[in-house]
Amino acid sequence: MDSTKPLIKIDEETSDFIAEILEKGAQIFPKEELERILTCIQCGTCYGSCPSGRITAYHVRVIMRKAQLGLKEEVLKDENLWNCTTCYTCQERCPREVETTDTIRLIRNMAFEAGYVKKPHLIVSRNFIETGHSIPLRDEDKEKRKRVGVSEIPPTTLTYPEALKEVQTLVEATGFKEKVLKLLEEG
C-alpha cells in the first residue's frame, strides 16, 4: 500500500490487526490485559508522555489508532516503531490501562518477521549473535573497568564460552540468526 495516500478504505485495505496482535501476545500476556487496546480513546496521554516522541517522528497514539483501524502494513513499515525506548512511561499513565509498550514490542516482533527492521538494529543483533553482547567490549571499556577495580573482561559470555554456546543455540533454534543475517545481506 502506498503510505502517502491519505484515503483509508475500510476492509478493502484493512484487516483485523488487533486479533493478530492478541494472538501474537497470547503466550506472554493475559488476553484481558492486551485487548484493552480496543478501549483506547485517543486521549494522547501516551504520546504526551513519550520521551522519544518529543525528538523523533515516533507517535505512539497514532500507532494505537492505526492498529484499531487495522492498518497493519502501514504500522509494520513505520520505521519510527524502532524509536520507542521501552521506558514504559506511557503504559504507566494510560487511563484505559492499554498495554502500550508491550503492544509496541509485539508489533516490532511482527515487523521483524515481516522483514521491516532498521539497519542499526540488525547490526546490534549481529553483535549479539556473534558475542552474546549487543554492544561490543571496546579497549576503553576495559580500561575503565580496570580503573574501578573490576575484572577487565566481564563475567558473561566473554568469560564463559559455554554460555555463549547456549546463546548461539537459542538464536539458531528460533531462526533469529538466519533471519538477521539474511536481512543484512539484502541490505
Binding site: 491519505p6 484515503l7 483509508i8 478504505k9 475500510i10 476492509d11 497514532v62 489508532r65 483501524l69
Partner: peptide, 12 residues
C-alpha cells in the same frame, strides 16, 4: 474523516 489520524476514510 478519522480525525484521530487526520485522514479520510470510506466504509461500506
Amino acid at each position: 474523516e478519522d480525525t484521530m489520524l487526520g485522514r479520510p476514510i470510506e466504509n461500506k
